[in-house]
Structures are given as structure tokens and as C-alpha cells.
Design a protein around this nucleic acid. Structure first.
Length: 373
DNA sequence: AAGCACTCCAACCGCGAGGCA
DNA sequence: CTGCCTCGCGGTTGGAGTGCT
């Protein structure tokens, strides 16, 4: 019923193509075009089904196919496009000249997916993975990110490395946010805890923007005393098992990027980024959001991000299009319309959200490593 | 050198969309 | 409107290649 007959039923050849078969296919298509793929094998003298011929031509023999290793730029573009389009390989392929959907799909499954996973990024959602397996690897990721921080001070920022640092920063944010949730949902909170948690939560917006910035402080000893299990690894793990990476965090991320992205001409954003960079935090939280929205906070754009944005602009993904209705699709409502780039504002702040808490000396990643370990 | 495990990618499979009678 | 047919897409597989013990 409506299905092309299986090759098996017709005694047609399957499996790898011989050079002679390739040549017959090339010769025929070059002189006649492919026409009906179903009819082609007979006309070309091939003992193959039309489907097999079509695949061989489109994935291998087509003259405009570019072979060889994927460049760094191509990889970045694939990642960017995948974050927008999901597993729409054919759509992604239209933006990489000479690459086939099959090739891109293979490269994604064999290389890029692993790369993202190693960086603690969920290859489906392009967000940091909320699971504890990632947290178990966080110290290594943090160590790697510290090395990468140096490279991120260069004008031409490597997007993959940026993503890696983003993962680190977001993992911290996630940890921070979940700690607050643990605090605020404590079954027997002390008055001090309640006050502290309330204060923290009321200022979480700022904390999310600047969780480990120059004014980083940690809760004082009273907070720790009243929550003896708070920084206990096992208890933290148990608690976090029950707390999915909260959507509200995502919303806050997007909220802030929407503010920041509109301010690429505003020195505040650049100053903020610089302050983060100078404090070895590189504003990667922002850059994650920027990369998700295709633009960098410092006003620079990477080729891949520009291309991705252009791709979206050129071929908008409609939520009503059946082509784009899979579960894998990224939520377009979270994306920033590049056309809106001048409509937002950002503020530079010196507000200290930790307020009542004592300053701590531990402002480095070691502090976080210790918490996690 | 042999055996095993793992990686990579060309090719296949099954499904759905769309055209057409 | 219905059913047949073709095409394209995304997921999966199998085997060649490679590295390790």
C-alpha cells in the first residue's frame, strides 16, 4: 500500500556499491538527469532499487559534495543550527554547502553529541545536564574551563570552548539555585534560615547574573550551622535528585539575556563582561545565553551564530509547520529576535545581594569543588 | 600475530507528506 | 474524497577500519 517494493522481493542488489555501478549511475544522471528514481535503475542498467540509487547519488556521487573532515566553523554552525532546528538534518544541511544530511547526522552522532555530553551539555536541549553524573565530573570540567578562560580573553572566541565554560557557569548557577530551593523548602527552617533564604531568593535575579563575581560571598556560619546537611555531598545529591533543573532558572536566563542582548552598544554590558573576565568568570553565563540567542554580549558575532540567525531569518521555523513539530524542537519563544536587538536595556549594578552575609575568602572555583566533592 | 573492543560511516529501513488520477 | 505512488526524511544497522591488549 503506497510503499515502494522492497529490494529483497525483487532480487535487486543491496549493500556497498561497486565502482562500475557508480559509473553507470553517474553517466546516466549526467546525460539524462535522474527523472523518476523508480524508473532510473532499469534505464541506467543497474540491478538496484530506485531508492538505493537516489541515496547513492545524493549522499555520495553528487558532484557538489564536499568530502573530508568537518572544519571547526562547520561544527559550530551545526551545533548552533541544531539548537534551533533539532534533528532536522536536511534543513541543517541546506546551510552547509556540500554537506549531506546523512553526513551531518553521522558526524553529530559520532562526534558532536559526545563532545557536548563531555562538556556537560545535553545534546537534545543544549542546556547543561541536570543529572548528578555531570556534577560528579564537574571538578574536571571546572579545571578545563579555567584553562579555557585564558583563551576566552582573545578577540576570536572559540565557540566550543565558550560552551564548555558556559556549562561550568550554569552548573554553578544550577547548584546555587537548587541550594536555595533546598533552603527555602526546608521542613524545619530556623528563623535565621528563613530570613536568609528569603533574602537570597528575593535577590536571586542578581545572583544568577553574578553568582561568583567580584563581590562573591557565601552564607555565614549561622546558615551552615542551621543547615548541617546543606553542603553534605550525599544529602545534597539526595536533595538534588528530587529537584529537576528548574524551569524558573531557564526563564531567568532568558529574561536576562533579553535584557542584555539589546544592549550590545551599551558599555554597561561590555563593562559587565569585562568585570567577569577580569575575575576569571568571563561572563560565561551571559555568553551561554548569548550563544543560545545567536549573538555575543560584547557585540561581536561569530560566523556560526550569524549564520544560524540568518538561517532562522531566511527560513523561519513555524510552530505550525508539521516539519518542525517534533518534541526535539527548541522552544522558539525563548529565542531573541535579532530584529529586536535595539529594544532592550541593561543595567550595571553594584548591588550586593548577599547583604547580611559575611564576606568569605573563598571566591574561587576551589570553593565550589569542595562543596561538590 | 591474534583476538577483541570500539569507532565510523555508507547504506538500509520504515514512515509520512504530497502529488495525482 | 480515496487510494496509489513517489520521494524525502530521520533512525538504525552492519561491516570495514583502527587501536589496544
Amino acid at each position: 500500500m503506497g510503499r515502494a517494493p522492497c529490494c529483497d522481493d525483487n532480487g535487486l542488489k543491496k549493500g556497498p556499491w561497486m565502482p562500475e555501478e557508480d559509473q553507470k549511475l553517474i553517466d546516466y544522471i549526467q546525460s539524462h538527469g535522474h527523472g523518476s528514481w523508480r524508473a532510473l535503475p532499469k534505464l541506467a542498467g543497474l540491478n538496484r532499487c530506485g531508492k538505493s540509487c537516489r541515496l547513492r547519488w545524493t549522499n555520495y556521487l553528487r558532484p557538489d559534495i564536499k568530502r573530508g573532515k568537518f572544519s571547526e566553523e562547520e561544527e559550530q554552525l551545526i551545533i548552533s543550527l541544531h539548537s534551533v532546528l533539532g534533528n532536522k538534518w536536511s534543513q541543517i544541511a541546506t546551510h552547509l554547502a556540500g554537506r549531506t544530511d546523512n553526513e551531518i547526522k553521522n558526524h553529530w552522532n559520532t562526534h558532536l553529541k559526545k563532545k557536548l555530553l563531555q562538556m556537560g551539555i545535553d545534546p537534545v536541549t543544549h542546556r547543561p545536564r541536570p543529572d548528578l553524573n555531570f556534577l560528579a565530573n564537574l571538578p574536571q570540567v571546572l579545571a578545563a574551563a579555567n584553562v579555557n578562560n585564558l583563551m576566552m580573553n582573545t578577540p576570536f572566541i572559540n565557540n566550543a570552548l565558550r560552551l564548555q565554560a558556559d556549562a561550568t557557569q550554569l552548573a554553578k548557577i544550577q547548584l546555587l539555585h537548587n541550594l536555595f530551593q533546598v533552603l527555602s523548602s526546608s521542613s524545619s527552617p530556623t528563623a535565621a534560615t528563613t530570613t536568609n533564604a528569603s533574602h537570597l531568593l528575593s535577590n536571586i535575579d542578581h545572583l544568577l547574573l553574578n553568582p561568583l563575581g567580584p563581590t562573591t560571598v557565601v552564607p555565614n556560619n549561622e546558615l551552615l550551622r542551621s543547615n548541617p546537611g546543606l553542603f553534605d555531598g550525599q544529602q545534597l545529591a539526595n536533595n538534588m535528585n528530587n529537584i529537576p533543573f528548574s524551569q524558573s532558572s531557564h526563564d531567568l536566563h532568558d529574561h536576562y539575556i533579553n535584557q542584555a542582548i539589546g544592549d550590545t552598544n551599551n558599555n554597561n554590558v561590555q563593562n559587565f563582561m569585562m568585570s567577569q573576565t577580569n575575575n576569571n568568570n568571563i561572563g560565561s553565563y551571559n555568553s551561554h545565553l548569548m550563544s543560545n540567542s545567536y549573538f555575543m554580549a560584547d557585540g561581536n558575532t561569530t560566523t556560526s551564530n550569524v549564520n544560524a540567525a540568518a538561517a532562522v531569518g531566511a527560513a523561519p521555523v513555524s510552530s505550525t509547520s508539521p516539519e518542525c513539530s517534533t518534541a526535539n524542537q527548541t522552544d522558539e519563544s525563548n529565542k531573541v529576535n535579532p530584529n529586536d536587538i535595539s529594544t532592550h536595556s541593561s543595567t550595571s549594578t553594584t548591588f550586593d545581594p548577599w547583604g547580611e552575609f559575611n564576606l568569605a575568602d573563598e571566591t574561587s572555583d576551589h570553593y565550589w569543588n569542595d562543596i561538590i566533592e
